[in-house]
Every structure is written in structure tokens, then in C-alpha cells.
Design a protein around this nucleic acid. Structure first.
Lengths: 196, 196
DNA sequence: ATTTTTCATACAGAATAATATATAGAGAAT
DNA sequence: ATTCTCTATATATTATTCTGTATGAAAAAT
């Protein structure tokens, strides 16, 4: 009777094993008993919501309620995080990191605060989403503008334009269909994210 | 007792209300009793996981376990689908208006007449449909192409592509599911056509 | 071969979720 | 005012979780 939530409890077990934590240790961290955890993982019993929250927290996981329609985009993020990193994502992270550091300094340059927030959040996404070669180029272009702005600070209009172009980049990466997703060495399927 | 799952149950209530669904209707859809739902939403009782799953499903929501470090990225996606404001819709109308004026001039550029008609109809819809932040971005991108075409007129192939992208935009706005619909209250009634 | 660790399982009892049903109050609609 | 809908709340009963504790079996480490 318990497989309505099986996909969640299986993820719990996978997460625990991925960080090489024993049921006993998880028990200590979460406050549930070991026997309880065993039953949850096995599907012998359906946990209460609060138990799941406790266990998830202990595994550095968060419970999110997401509209079904957004699930492809969210899966994109979850998978890209567990996908093996290749040279593309390495450079990508370097670039995003540079943009983030720049933003920390230039945040006040934004005329509108919400625009600055949007920009920061777009960066958060770009750090985790797979990019095509073309998109990576655009990301590179963006960081190159930073160089020009070292000497000559941008106007708020330029900044706004800049933020928009970064957001465009984010959009194209987020809403990519999984079918034409960037080919990667091994696209891990949902249930086997236990590769470090 | 202070429940640690209140952030989830609050989202349930918010989702239900956003869809204008009564507790009774949700009760019918989810299989829980109305009284049960009331207590969950109020926080007087903590639901079991399976109850939460049932309710979430009935609201077209999915429960996701996400690594904490990915939360900024995920929040970004969740917000981009629901964020909207008055200023945004104002901008939306400005953009659509611009596209419409442009179309009045460039209508002959379309190789196929039906394509032009479809384009015009898409615009008419876009004027009245609530758009997410993402969709507004795409709309903005579209109008920016117009700028480039001031000097350098588009080929009929480019034009066709352009019309297609606008139509896609229209589709995503039209076929949005109830659950993540943009709350209309702010601008549902304030619409008087400003003719171009 | 022995010890340790890890996981599955069992059981009793306390705590709490969940059902079914009913009702009261608030607000909206007629 | 009367009727309707919606939400909160109450009560009694059943069902399930959860704890605490203990044990067996398999696997790993010594």
C-alpha cells in the first residue's frame, strides 16, 4: 500500500547511501529511531510528513512543492547537479563565479532593486544548468563586458540591458526541452544519482 | 505545537485559493475529508506524507526532494512562473502595442497571408493574457528584433521564424494550467483597449 | 574465527493521524 | 430575512505512526 510515496523514500535512501551514512547515524541526526528509518526506506510504512522533513533536513535535502508544469525545468537542475562535470561546466562555473563576484560589488549600480535580485537569481541558475556551446559563448561575452567596465563604469541603462541579456541566457537554458538537451557523457537517470 | 511543516501546508492553501477551489472540492479530488483539509491548512494537525501527496496531486503539484544548495536555482524557477505585477502588465501592453503597430506596416512582408493573420491573432491574445516573467522576457526579445530590422529588413524566412516564436509565446500563455495561473485579480477588470 | 557494523524485523504501548458526521458562524447571493 | 457556500471546530471511533527495545542475519573488519 505504500508506493504512493515510494519515489520519495527511495530518494531518501539514495541520498543517505550517497553520503555513506548509516541508518544509525541518520537516526542520531534526525531524531527518529533506526528501526523507523529502516521501515520508511523499505516502504513497510509511510512516514508522517514531519518525519520526512526531519530525515530530509538531516540529509541536507529540502522538500519543495512544485507545479507539475515546471517539473521538466526542475529536473534539468537536479540532473545537471548530479551529472558528471566535464570541461564545459568547469569553464561555465568559472564564468558565473566571476559574474557573481562582480555583482557583489556592483549591486548598487542597479537602479531597480528587483532587477538586481533577478540578476542574482539568474546567475544562481546558470551555475547549475547545462549550457550549449553557443550559450557558453554568450556567457563569455557577458563577462567580457565586465572588463570594459573596469575603467568605465556602466550607466544604469547599460546595466539594465546587461541584466536582461543574462536573463535571456537563463531562459533559453531553463526552457530547453529534455529531448534537445545538451548531449552529455552519461545522462544519469533519476534513481541512480549515487555517483560522487 | 509549532509545526515545522507549516511552510508546506501554507503553500497548499495558497495553491488551492489561487485555483479558487473550495476545501470541499479539494476534498472530493483528493479523497481526504473537508475537516481534515481544514485542520491541515490551519496547522492544527500535521498531515501524514501520503495525505500531503494526495492533496498536492489534486492541486497539480509535485513533491520534490532537492539538495539545499540547489534551492536558489529552484526558487528562481518557481518564482519566474508566478511572479507578476502591475508594472509588468503595463510593459506587456506597451510591447504588444509596439508589435501591433509594426505589424500594420510590415504585414506585406509575410510570404503567406494566413501566417500574417495568425500572427495578428496571436498579438490580440497576448494583449489580454497574463504573462509570467519568463514570457514577458521573451516578448521583450521579440520586440528587440524589430529594432534590428529597422535598418535591415527581415527575409521572409526570418519573418516566418519570428511569427512562429510569437505564436509559441501565445501558446504557452494560453495553455497554462489552472494551478500555476497568474493571479488575475490585479488587472482583471482594468482593461480598456488603447487602440493603436 | 571472532568481533563489529549494518540493516531488517518483531512487539507492546503511547501518541497522533484520519474518518465520518455534525454543527456553528461568517459572508455572499438571492 | 433567507438561503447558500465556505470554513472552522467538535466528538467519537478506527487506523496508523512512532518510540523503545530487542533480536536475527548478513556483511565487513579485525
Amino acid at each position: 500500500m505504500a508506493y504512493k510515496t515510494e519515489y520519495l523514500t527511495q530518494r531518501i535512501r539514495a541520498a543517505r547511501e550517497a553520503m555513506k551514512m548509516s541508518q544509525r547515524e541518520l537516526s542520531a541526526r534526525s531524531g527518529l529511531t533506526q528501526s523507523h528509518i529502516s521501515q520508511i526506506e523499505r516502504g513497510t510504512m509511510e512516514p508522517g510528513l514531519s518525519s520526512l522533513v526531519d530525515v530530509a533536513r538531516a540529509l541536507d535535502l529540502e522538500i519543495v512543492l512544485a507545479p507539475k508544469k515546471l517539473m521538466p525545468a526542475i529536473r534539468n537542475i537536479l540532473e545537471s547537479a548530479s551529472a558528471t562535470s566535464d570541461t564545459l561546466t568547469l569553464e561555465q562555473r568559472k564564468l558565473v563565479g566571476r559574474l557573481e563576484r562582480w555583482f557583489a560589488q556592483f549591486r548598487d549600480g542597479f537602479a531597480i532593486a528587483s532587477e538586481a535580485d533577478t540578476f542574482r537569481d539568474s546567475l544562481a541558475l546558470l551555475r547549475h544548468l547545462p549550457l550549449s556551446a553557443d550559450e557558453l559563448d554568450r556567457l563569455k561575452d557577458a563577462t567580457e563586458r565586465l572588463d570594459r567596465w573596469q575603467a568605465d563604469p556602466p550607466s544604469s541603462k547599460e546595466l539594465s540591458e546587461f541584466a536582461h541579456s543574462v536573463r535571456q541566457l537563463r531562459n533559453s537554458a531553463v526552457h530547453r526541452d529534455r529531448d534537445d538537451a545538451i548531449p552529455r557523457s552519461a545522462y544519469a537517470l533519476e534513481e541512480e544519482d549515487d555517483n560522487a
